[in-house]
Design a protein around this nucleic acid. Sequence first.
DNA 1: GCACGTGTTCAAAACTGACG
DNA 2: CGTCAGTTTTGAACACGTGC
Length: 305
Amino acid sequence: MNTSDIIRLASQYIANLAGRKFDVLYLSKPVTVNGAINLAKVISKLSPFLGNLIEFNTVEFLNNQDDFTEFGRWERQDPGFPDTIFVGDIKPTPGLEIKTWFPLATEITARFKDSQNHFQFDQTHVAMLAWLPEKIIYGKPRILDVCVVSGLSVALARDNHYHNPPDYLVLEPEDTTQRTANLQQTNTSGYKFQGSIDELLEAQEIVNLWGAEGKIYKPTREYQQLLRELLIRYKYRLDTNFAKMDRIAHPGIEEFKKRIYNAEVYGMTVGEWNKLLSSRREDRIKKLLQKHLEIREESIDELLD
DNA sequence: GCACGTGTTCAAAACTGACG
DNA sequence: CGTCAGTTTTGAACACGTGC
């Protein structure tokens, strides 16, 4: 067993979580259609909470598989990156960064900002778990499907997708090795050009001087120095949506998105549920909730009011 | 020894403007 | 008019250092 064997095995087990319900919470069935509409509007607030529960449960699930026990065990390290590591004799330490996705939200909110420099041995993978309540807006949380991709591949896709000097700069974290643990920086960030057209043309001339490969992203000290000079000379803004999993254009993640949105749950695809529940046409929402989830128009309580 | 401020990171969502 | 990318605002956890 080496690092990649452990990762591969864990990926297989995680893939088997698809379809599994987590018995950590039950959301009661709304009694009326209006109740259901209100619930539909706020159900995404559960996402961060459920995300954490799912992360705990995934680790527990992995440790229940006998294949791992003789080599070590999976442990959470949150905060910290990655959030799950395999503690044992196998080096480099295999790691999993678990991200959860609630596909009725407007987009995948999880971001992935860690520097390419942290994945030199490709020892860390990213597991994305898409979940929904079993009855869309109520019931137990259920894992719809799962996607595991290498952390390095995500970091590379991100940097190649965003980096486009001088218009958009991806920057490595500062050298913070001298600082205490809580002040360490590990994240890349994205900056968007804010100067005038003339300034942009001028900046382009500078980039041209960097040579044929000057626009290709490199996390090296020398290249980062060039980027920092641009950042000092011209106006840039921090892009806070930088590195959202939804926007990275990673082939594996894009395929996963397609798969989830096309998955059928209670008579409609997840994509259709998403669109419906985020629309403002409450009459349509009511109709479909009644049709697919058998929620009544009015409760007796309401009639008595 | 503890309360509190600071730096860093993470995430959700409202809003804006362009584009077809 | 709806969609999408970009922008801004809001809220929070956590560890360290400082000052009382």
